[in-house]
Simulated assay, not measured.
Amino acid sequence: MEFGVAADAYRSDPSKKATRNGAVMVTVVLALAAFLAVLGAWYALAGALSLVAIAVALVVGLAVLSSVHVCLEWERAVIMRLGRFSRLAGPGIFFSIPLIEFCTLRVDQRTIATPFGAEEALTSDLVPLDVDAVLFWMIWDPEKACTEVEDCRFAVALTAQTALRDAIGRASVSNVVMRRHQLDQELQEAVEAKVTDWGITVLSVEIRDIIIPKELHGVMSLEAQAECRKNARIALMEAERDVSAILQEVAETYSYDDIALSLRKMHLTYEGMQDNGSSLVVPSAYSEGFAKESGKESPER
């Protein structure tokens, strides 16, 4: 079973990754040195080599090969003694008792990126989706990762895929598309709850891609357009409501003050002429109204 096949295109060159070649060479060199040392000691004592000497040197070399181990900085070795957990070893060089102790698992404690996905997962409104995601996790307890689960990497990938299908099945297609961050958080919590007992912690879950069937692209586009028109009309009606409320307040103010209303008319007329650079033809009745008002006020002065 393959998870997140699309992520394989982003994998780096294997030659640029960290390797264990140096650690293996140290063990092999020490075993070869022990083999040659036994042969040299036998020759120095007996004066000649025989099949017995070669056999003894071979046994010593194999013993060194099985008892001397090297762990890299990010590795921890789970040591079993006669089938029971004994200790954790590493990093660096460590030794084990041949035939009694053995290194059953080397655990990588770096951050691990596991791509996974869900093909044709049904949403709550029965829309099949193809979702691609990536899980970042690490092993904080090598003992539990070895003794509590058979294959922790495969188990984590299966758990993540199951949680993804469950989360998609409880949400509509619009919620899955628009609430990706919340889906990431929900997946992280669901996976974390299952893998904590295995000595594993989940750092983050990120949705990489959501593929909607092509048959629904047109329908969803029409639905989005209708939603945009609806929102635009609601915004326009709310603006008209606010403007009408303001106009009502202004009308109430001008209804009690004729002078302010006349000044407002003159101001609007001036602004219109200034913006357009045009002339205004005023009816004679309009100018007589101002003259009449000034005639009323002159006797009082």
Rank of each mutant, 00 (worst) to 15 (best):
S67L: 08
T104F: 02
A57C: 10
F95C: 04
A63E: 12
E73G: 00
V78Y: 03
I97G: 01
F102I: 00
P91N: 06
G90T: 03
G92C: 09
R110Y: 07
V78T: 05
V70M: 10
C103W: 04
R76E: 03
F94V: 00
I100V: 15
L82D: 15
I93N: 00
V78E: 07
M80L: 15
A63M: 15
L58W: 14
F94T: 00
G83I: 06
V56F: 13
L82K: 14
C103R: 14
C71W: 02
A57H: 07
R84D: 15
G61C: 06
A89F: 02
V59W: 13
R84K: 14
A89I: 01
A77R: 01
I97V: 15
V64I: 12
L72W: 08
S86I: 02
I93F: 09
L82S: 13
C71A: 15
L88W: 03
C103K: 13
V107I: 14
T104L: 05
R84V: 10
A63C: 15
L99D: 05
D108H: 09
E73T: 04
I100E: 10
R81D: 12
V68F: 14
S67N: 06
V56K: 02
D108R: 06
T104G: 11
H69G: 03
S96N: 12
S67K: 00
V64K: 01
W74D: 14
I79S: 03
C71M: 14
E73P: 12
S66G: 12
D108C: 03
G92F: 09
V78D: 06
E75D: 11
V78P: 07
S86C: 06
V64W: 08
R84C: 09
L99V: 13
L99A: 14
I93D: 00
A63G: 15
V59S: 10
F95W: 14
L82C: 07
L105G: 01
C71K: 11
L82H: 13
E101S: 05
C103S: 11
S86L: 02
A77W: 01
L62A: 13
T104N: 08
V64L: 04
L88S: 02
G61P: 10
A57I: 06
P91E: 09
R87L: 03
S86V: 03
V64E: 10
G92R: 04
F95S: 01
V78S: 07
F94K: 00
R76C: 02
L72P: 07
R84Q: 15
F95P: 02
V68P: 10
V78H: 04
T104H: 07
R84E: 15
L65S: 11
V70F: 13
S86M: 05
G92M: 07
